[in-house]
Simulated assay, not measured.
Amino acid sequence: MPTVPTVDLNRFMGDWYVIANIPTFLERDAYNAVESYALDDDGNIPTTFTFNKGAFDGPKKTYRPKGFVRDTQSNAEWGMQFIWPIKADYRIVHLNEDYSQVIIGRNARDYVWLMARTPTIADADYERLVQKIAQFGYDVTKLKKVPQQSLDER
């Protein structure tokens, strides 16, 4: 699966709200899902994934995988390690020029994440990004919107 030509890692770091995904078993029933990236001095990317389980006021879950840039030419292909020694395929396949919306895909086309810097995006943006996900070969009928509260409601 092709990636974007280049990613400025410093600009990519920070919080990304999961707008929709084909969820992994960990993400089923996730509300307010946020993936936060930081860049270590050694180039690794400690990640914090948080969400509420089952409802907006459900128990908060936190996972701390670590990202490893595999393609240092583009910075768009990573390995994401939840459990040692497995580094899952993680590809930045679409990234808005202003770093406001991203699609993360996998070669296996089993999971996908549509994320944004804000908890919600315009319907037109959502539809356009879903079309891109379909063009990457995903079955978009498996795509699930992740319930997100506005920042004021959290």
Rank of each mutant, 00 (worst) to 15 (best):
P2V: 10
P2G: 11
P2A: 12
V4P: 05
V4H: 07
P5H: 05
T6S: 14
T6N: 14
T6R: 14
V7F: 02
D8G: 05
F12L: 09
M13G: 01
G14M: 07
D15C: 08
I19K: 02
I19V: 08
I19A: 05
A20L: 13
N21P: 00
I22P: 01
P23D: 10
F25H: 06
F25K: 07
L26Q: 12
L26D: 10
A30K: 01
Y31A: 03
N32E: 02
V34W: 09
V34M: 09
V34G: 07
V34N: 09
E35D: 15
Y37Q: 04
D40R: 15
D41G: 14
D41Y: 11
D41P: 09
D42N: 15
D42Q: 10
D42S: 15
G43E: 14
I45W: 11
I45D: 09
K53L: 15
G54Q: 09
G54M: 11
A55G: 13
F56Y: 15
G58N: 08
P65D: 01
K66R: 12
F68R: 08
V69L: 05
V69M: 08
R70P: 00
R70W: 14
R70Y: 13
T72R: 15
T72A: 10
Q73K: 14
Q73W: 02
Q73A: 14
Q73S: 09
S74Q: 05
N75L: 05
W78Q: 04
M80F: 08
M80Q: 04
I83E: 03
W84T: 07
K87N: 13
R91W: 07
I92T: 13
V93G: 05
V93F: 03
H94F: 13
E97K: 10
E97F: 04
Q101W: 04
I103C: 11
I104V: 15
G105A: 06
G105T: 07
A108I: 06
R109T: 04
R109N: 05
R109V: 02
V112H: 05
V112S: 04
V112P: 04
W113V: 00
A116P: 02
A116N: 05
R117G: 13
P119V: 07
I121H: 09
A122R: 13
A122H: 11
D123H: 03
D123V: 06
D123L: 04
A124N: 09
Y126D: 11
Y126P: 04
R128M: 12
L129D: 12
L129E: 04
V130L: 04
Q131I: 02
Q131F: 08
K132T: 12
I133A: 01
I133Y: 00
A134Y: 12
F136Q: 05
F136C: 01
T141K: 10
T141F: 03
K142R: 15
L143S: 01
L143C: 01
K145M: 13
P147E: 09
P147M: 06
Q148E: 10
Q149T: 10
Q149R: 12
Q149M: 14
E153W: 04
